[in-house]
Design a binder for these strands. Sequence first.
DNA 1: TATTTAGGTGAACATTTGTTCAGTAGGTGA
DNA 2: TCACCTACTGAACAAATGTTCACCTAAATA
Lengths: 208, 208
Amino acid sequence: MSLTKREKECLDVIRRYIYENRLPPTIQNICDELGLKSKNAGFKILTQLENKGYIKRNRFISRGIELVERVEKIGIPIVGKITAGVPITAEENIEGYLSLDQFIGDKDNYFALRVIGDSMVDKGILDGDLAVIRKQNEIFPNQIGAFMINGEFTLKTFKVDKDGRFYLKPENASYRPIYISDLDQFEVKGVLKAIIRSYGEHNETRKY
Amino acid sequence: MSLTKREKECLDVIRRYIYENRLPPTIQNICDELGLKSKNAGFKILTQLENKGYIKRNRFISRGIELVERVEKIGIPIVGKITAGVPITAEENIEGYLSLDQFIGDKDNYFALRVIGDSMVDKGILDGDLAVIRKQNEIFPNQIGAFMINGEFTLKTFKVDKDGRFYLKPENASYRPIYISDLDQFEVKGVLKAIIRSYGEHNETRKY
DNA sequence: TATTTAGGTGAACATTTGTTCAGTAGGTGA
DNA sequence: TCACCTACTGAACAAATGTTCACCTAAATA
């Protein structure tokens, strides 16, 4: 069932509140955020969201709101295709959200990136993996990081050769290192902090 | 600073409440669990836990309790060394906890396993990775699973050869497949659902 | 012995919270 | 035109919530 504009706004408020406070909002909190003067207005929207299956409510406890959607939506943003020039965590780049409480404390400094291609397989990073990146503009040699080079976004190992030249090393023998010259537009976007890989359903018929 | 018995009990109650309800408890909730008749008793314990740095409190909102410890403790258990014969998720096997809200709903059916060795590197599973396993006693061919064979716990790909014989395939050319005979004590413990790898700190000196 | 500390009870309180009832106003479709 | 929906306001209320004050008790400590 589809959401009205107001219901969607309400859902966003709930998501954001949980993200920021690590616990669900009260009805009053929601009303404040939506600019509603009567708690009843918020109460009704919640009931609608519940009926449409977007939230679950525990009527016996305060703040008893639970998002039915995968809680991925509450955590750090998963960046899909990166649009060059646009800030990484801009809305249009976000594929979903990942909740990894390990990173509690400075969640804002993280984002996740869907790995495309096999250029890092030798380090056990496969196509489709989720790379959790901590935003930073500097990086140590031999660290794996996320880089923007000539408008392209990429995950590689940062290296410095004996002559002090920088290059990005794909961890796959069939790819060549990318040397960075002064002519290149180059930017360190962050450093790899974790890899998360999900295994889906089986593809066979008989179970044992 | 160390905890008194009661403080530790209180902390456990908070952890469990969050785990079960996905939001922090009220003071009353805590008192109920601890068998306290006066909210003041719980209030005081919370203040002590706060002073000792085990929780943070937001005094402006209800349920404003936040665990300071890594929230890893609230999620699914991370199994370290497995003691043969002992249930996998028995206390002595548990290395820590992992919070991965992706698995919300049936968290109880998951555990995480620290990967030891390089027997699965060809599938991008490295030494030290965390393998998230869903408990089940059956598995499809070609799925990666956790198995107990002759008292040893292992993560391998489950295979059936053309003659219908079962074997566990290490994903590393230097290891040999393990055929399962009727003489072997063999058990399927679960199926691999995710791999999580954390990257620690740098090991270089100069940052760029 | 006197005092501190952990661990309570019990009552009181101002707010917050969830909820219900009774309305209002604009827009849409029959 | 009428009914209906979305989207509110406003008032009321019982219960829950966080907090404070006064006081109790057993065990450890000075």
